[in-house]
């Protein structure tokens, strides 16, 4: 895989096909955990981690189990199984060996178990016919795109708390409106393809 291809893959995963603002996946944690910047950062780091690891794991299962047995149609079910048990395993592993990291990420891990953004990455890797390295890079960079969206939005929300807006818009409505405006900005990258 050439360097140019990697850069192109990364940029498109972060900006052009941003999971939250363009694909509208992972909206639940996006709205739920974005009230404060530090929790948003914690959640984003967990998502980056889980997306990378699950990209690798699902690639292996897809390549060596599903494809040989001609079970492409069972992909979604199999991937849910893989991601859920992988996250559970990582949680157990972290609790024992890296308690500090567990306390930082631990509360977000169960939230990610059945997150559609994570499943989306795994399915898109297959759809895009990426190789192992490509899948891992795509997973990692999609996570970074998720993190950027989370951090931008959480800092906006922190300012929204103090801003002056009509009572009817307080809380969730104003958050949804600002999310849609933010999404418009990312839509500007639509149709952009880099180096290919």
């Amino acid at each position: 895989m050439s360097f140019v291809k990697i850069v192109s893959l990364s940029l498109s995963a972060i900006l052009v096909e941003n999971f939250i603002f363009v694909r509208f996946l992972g909206i639940c944690p996006f709205l739920g955990v974005s009230k404060k910047t530090d929790t948003a950062v914690g959640m984003s780091l967990s998502v980056i981690f889980v997306m990378t690891v699950s990209s690798a794991a699902t690639y292996i299962v897809n390549r060596f189990v599903l494809v040989p047995f001609d079970l492409g149609y069972m992909r979604t079910v199999a991937f849910i199984l893989i991601i859920a048990s992988l996250v559970q395993f990582v949680e157990l592993f972290l609790m024992k060996s890296v308690p500090a990291l567990f306390h930082a990420l631990g509360i977000y891990l169960p939230l990610i178990t059945t997150n559609c953004a994570v499943l989306g990455v795994a399915l898109l890797n297959v759809k895009k016919e990426l190789d192992f390295l490509g899948s891992v890079i795509n997973g990692f960079m999609s996570g970074v795109g998720f993190a950027i969206a989370m951090i931008i939005f959480s800092s906006i929300r922190e300012h929204l708390e103090e801003s002056d807006h009509p009572k009817a818009f307080e809380g969730f409505p104003i958050a949804l409106i600002s999310a849609s405006l933010l999404s418009l900005a990312f839509m500007g990258f639509q149709g952009l393809s880099i180096f290919n």
Partner: peptide
């Protein structure tokens, strides 16, 4: 097809 699907996913 059904058998192999059940077996593979069951084993997984």
């Amino acid at each position: 097809g059904i058998l192999s699907a059940i077996l593979t996913l069951g084993l997984l």
